[in-house]
Simulated assay, not measured.
Amino acid sequence: MKLVYVFDAYCGWSHGFSRTLLDVAGRHPDVPVEVVSGGLFTGARRVPIREFGYVRGANAKISELTGAEFGPAYDRLIADGSFVMDSDDAARGMAALREAAPGRAAELAAALQRAFYVDGLSLSDPATYRKVAGDAGLDGDAVAAAFTAPAARAAAEGDFRRAARLGVDAFPTLVAEAGGRTVAVARGHATADEVDRRLAALGM
């Protein structure tokens, strides 16, 4: 069996799902977790955050349901509404981190979301990836360089296609693949216990 986690680093609900993702991965250490960026804020949706009037209300609900933290530095970053969430950049950064430590993709995805939602760091800034990588014991300079390289852009575009092939259009979505079957076991919000029950019901 393999788990495929389709998320967007700029998605608050994905941030809220981080704890569940890490819990599930910890309970099933022999099950690989593939992390795929879905591309939530691309094209015409790449606009100042003030255009999304629901953000603060949604974040409050996410925090209430999941316990996810939205830090003061994040609040300051988005305070004037001019910050632009660019999922192309976030996907390139996730690709660079994933390349550096493929077996730690779930952990790095959660760390990347924490960098934005708690530490208030832009996911369009190479310095963010240098810090996330360094904090994880990886080569920060190498990851920051990979973020700006053409291979990361190609990997991000590949992720968007992969998400589309899986039929995922809402984030986060956790998919289980086994025996030729592909089944979504979580969408939006779920606990690790709920995911485990769904996996057991599927015989996975």
Rank of each mutant, 00 (worst) to 15 (best):
S63E: 15
S122H: 11
P48T: 08
K131N: 02
E107V: 01
T128W: 12
F52A: 09
I78V: 15
S124L: 03
A73N: 10
A68F: 05
Y74N: 00
S124D: 08
L108G: 06
V84H: 00
S63A: 15
R56N: 00
L97E: 10
T128F: 03
R104T: 07
I49D: 10
I49Y: 02
A95S: 14
R50Q: 07
E69G: 04
D119P: 00
E69P: 00
A73C: 10
A73P: 03
Y54P: 06
A127Q: 13
L123M: 07
A96S: 05
F52M: 10
R104W: 09
Y54S: 12
L121E: 15
T128V: 11
A79F: 04
G38R: 14
Y129P: 09
E99L: 12
S124P: 07
K61H: 13
A95T: 06
G81C: 08
G120L: 08
G53C: 01
V47D: 03
M85Q: 11
D80N: 03
F70S: 08
L123W: 14
F83V: 12
F52C: 11
L112W: 05
R92M: 10
G67K: 05
V132H: 05
F41N: 12
D80A: 04
R104S: 03
F70M: 08
R56L: 11
G43H: 01
A68M: 13
N59M: 04
S63R: 14
M85A: 14
A58N: 14
K131Q: 12
K61A: 14
S122P: 02
R114L: 08
G103V: 07
